[in-house]
Simulated assay, not measured.
Amino acid sequence: MSKLADLSAAGTAVWLDFVDRKFLEAGGLKTLVEQDGLTGVTSNPSIFEKAMGHGDAYDGTLAEFDSKHPDAATIDRYEHLAIQDIKAAAETLRPVYDRLDAKDGYVSLEVSPYIADDTDATIAEARKLWDAVDRPNLMIKIPGTLAGGPAISATIAAGISVNVTLLFSLEAYQRVADAYATGLEERVRHGQPIDRIASVASFFVSRIDATIDKEIDRRVKEGDSQSDTLKSVRGKVAIANAKVAYAWYQDFIASERWQALAAKGAQPQRLLWASTGVKDTAYPDTLYIDQLIGPDTVNTMPPKTMDAFRERGTIAPTLTDDIAGARRVLAEVERLGLDLGTVTGRLVEEGVASFATAFDDLLGAIARKQPATA
């Protein structure tokens, strides 16, 4: 059994933050499922831009599509390619989904980042993508913006599993958890089943430290009188934030509201740790896996981080360790004026903008691959 499989046994499911046509066709995903106990895949515009925008792996499929649809818009050409990859990944993961009775085995496909602040458009696109992929182990990714909340509820109520992305703060996560429960409650009111609907709430961890650490370093360099204390919280804020969020999750699933849903078969909305590649070489490259291990969680890793954990990761129930210490870190952050609330709010905006830029680049690359009849 590999160390990644041991991680899954400890309660943290292993997902791959990567999709690529050649990788899928070569059986790379199947190998990870069989050897490492992988149970899920995530995608986003940045991942698809790297996969589709470079090389020729998708050219044959695109040429065939263009020959049949010479007047297709660029967005339709992209969706055709993306949906093929998502279907292939879903087929590979379907045995996992069946074995775990719909509790895992999911592949995620994101709505357009252009509509992150449009509730109705998000709901409509979630339904369109769900119908196009037509696989029960699909999760539609919806950003955890203010507009995303009601879209999440409506999508869950429609019987579609959801991966909520771009979460950074406890407050945003609490809104998302409420949205998930609200969608399930709507189904219950209409006498519809809820036992095979799943959701994850994706916290992006490394970006918090990257932003906070930059401010810490600036203040220390300028000789801040609180330099020693500032240095003491460097690299600890994202993990503390995640631990406090998980503590809230534990309280929430013990609540009367959630227990009423659980009695009808509801699956808990697992916390998913995303952006787990370390951005500061001063930290261990497995930091955001080692320190976030606990039941009912997911860690989605890029291939490089997965390789690192396989070689030198450590497994222990760290997520519930020293919650009081995590709260002290966050209290110090507030006392020091590092303004985590403003940082997390800005990171959501930057995340949406970054995905929109990647989407721009992706569509531009596909547009330059001219239709076969041109």
Results as ranks from 00 to 15, higher is better:
residue 5 A to P: 08
residue 8 S to K: 12
residue 9 A to V: 06
residue 9 A to W: 12
residue 20 D to H: 15
residue 22 K to R: 15
residue 34 E to H: 12
residue 36 D to T: 10
residue 39 T to N: 09
residue 40 G to R: 01
residue 43 S to K: 05
residue 48 F to P: 05
residue 49 E to G: 05
residue 59 D to W: 11
residue 61 T to M: 08
residue 64 E to P: 03
residue 77 R to I: 07
residue 82 A to G: 06
residue 87 K to E: 05
residue 96 V to W: 01
residue 100 L to W: 08
residue 103 K to S: 03
residue 106 Y to Q: 03
residue 108 S to C: 14
residue 109 L to T: 04
residue 114 Y to L: 09
residue 129 L to I: 04
residue 130 W to H: 12
residue 133 V to E: 02
residue 133 V to C: 05
residue 137 N to M: 03
residue 139 M to R: 12
residue 139 M to L: 10
residue 139 M to D: 02
residue 141 K to C: 04
residue 142 I to E: 00
residue 148 G to Y: 02
residue 148 G to L: 02
residue 159 G to F: 01
residue 159 G to P: 01
residue 162 V to T: 05
residue 179 A to D: 14
residue 180 Y to N: 12
residue 180 Y to W: 11
residue 183 G to H: 01
residue 184 L to N: 01
residue 186 E to H: 13
residue 196 R to S: 08
residue 203 F to T: 06
residue 204 F to C: 04
residue 207 R to C: 04
residue 215 E to N: 02
residue 217 D to G: 04
residue 220 V to I: 11
residue 225 S to C: 07
residue 228 D to H: 11
residue 228 D to M: 09
residue 232 S to E: 10
residue 233 V to E: 12
residue 234 R to I: 07
residue 239 I to P: 02
residue 241 N to L: 08
residue 257 R to W: 13
residue 258 W to P: 00
residue 260 A to F: 03
residue 266 A to E: 11
residue 268 P to L: 03
residue 274 A to S: 05
residue 277 G to S: 15
residue 285 D to K: 12
residue 289 I to A: 02
residue 289 I to F: 13
residue 290 D to L: 03
residue 291 Q to V: 08
residue 292 L to N: 06
residue 298 V to N: 01
residue 300 T to V: 06
residue 300 T to E: 01
residue 301 M to N: 15
residue 303 P to D: 13
residue 306 M to E: 14
residue 308 A to E: 08
residue 313 G to T: 06
residue 314 T to V: 09
residue 317 P to V: 10
residue 320 T to P: 09
residue 321 D to R: 09
residue 342 T to V: 11
residue 355 F to Q: 00
residue 357 T to Q: 06
residue 358 A to F: 07
residue 358 A to H: 14
residue 361 D to G: 08
residue 364 G to M: 11
residue 373 T to V: 14
